[in-house]
Write a protein that binds this DNA or RNA. Structure first.
Lengths: 192, 192
DNA sequence: TGACAATCGGACCATCGGTCCGTATTCTGA
DNA sequence: TCAGAATACGGACCGATGGTCCGATTGTCA
């Protein structure tokens, strides 16, 4: 892999920032077109697509930036998110942390989960697979292996972006209401 | 409201059938265009859109037809789905029945939930609201009122079309595997 | 049967994601 | 420092899609 040219790097950054900003300030992610992003970034459309391939990938990159801190915390941070945490607490902390990120970045997360498209696949995305796998392993000792997988899916289903968005905008729940209810639910799911 | 003209009625039926068939036989709902449906129904595009307004509504109508039997069972059928059923069992039966419908009509259900679009809203669709409300009321006596709402969302989150689709196609679970796991989960959620 | 209203149908439109290629910029190494 | 190769740029362009419009057609009712 060659070194990235200076203008290329500059443009990549500009695109990422423009996209992040546009998604964050628009009502619905689908209202943000690739042309919009290119224009906002002061870049040609060709550049945008050469860098990121397609819309889905661009969204994922933006998402990855926002998610990096959490990912790092989980992979190698201190308790309660890091590896040196008893499974039960760690699962709870991870679910809560993901919920917080999604609540704080509702727009982006919606864009990602909405990405659907033909060859759909929230459940096939690397991020989902990774966190599902982690959760599954964490609860596997307590529940059976197959049950563990189900439980992991179930926990994640409760913090899908559109559901959280509905709870906030449609039912007027506050972020802390949601986190509290979620905590109860997780506790009830994990503790016999 | 005037009587519907004969040709109008005929065309509505043709469109509904064509759409149902196309969604059922295509891999991904988004591969089925409105032109495809119009052509398959032997009808002009204008007719299609005058009858159904937009894509989302058409899909919902098709969905409504498929769902009618279940809806009727729940509203006025015999136990375990109908009103003369103890809440606990009724909830369980309803969740199972919905799961079965979704598993049997994966394509259509995907089309519906994917419908997303700008003014998104699985959680705002009449069907979701109705079933959520029913479940909420059914569990309200046992749990608090606000917890009841959360639990209803949670139960429904576990039987979302894309999740079920992933379990089948991505993890190779059989329909009965899924129903069994789901039964366990519902039981665990509802029984202390 | 005639005449009016409702319906039909497909050409047409705007927009979107994505591609292409002539031009401009950056890098290299002598 | 500079020339030439390599790479990136950008916007015109493309095919497809959801949705609209309006002259032609068909059903209805007296």
């Amino acid at each position: 892999m060659q070194e990235e040219r200076a203008d290329a790097a500059r443009n990549r950054k500009a695109i990422l920032e423009a996209a992040d900003d546009l998604f964050a300030t628009s009502d619905s992610p689908s209202e943000v077109s690739m042309d919009d992003i290119a224009r906002a970034a002061g870049v040609g459309k060709g550049t945008l697509f050469r860098r990121f391939g397609d819309r889905r990938n661009l969204i994922q990159q933006v998402y990855a930036v926002r998610l990096a801190p959490l990912r790092e915390q989980i992979e190698s941070g201190p308790p309660p998110l890091g590896p040196d945490t008893p499974p039960r607490e760690r699962v709870s902390a991870i679910i809560d942390a993901i919920a917080v990120v999604k609540l704080d970045n509702a727009h982006l997360m919606l864009a990602l989960e909405e990405g659907s498209g033909p060859t759909n696949g929230l459940h096939k995305s690397p991020d989902y697979v990774a966190v599902h796998g982690l959760l599954r392993d964490l609860v596997a000792s307590k529940f059976g292996k197959s049950r563990a997988s189900w439980i992991a899916h179930s926990l994640l289903a409760n913090i899908r972006a559109d559901l959280l968005g509905h709870l906030v905008k449609g039912e007027g729940m506050s972020h802390s209401d949601i986190r509290l209810s979620l905590r109860d639910f997780v506790a009830h799911t994990l503790d016999y």
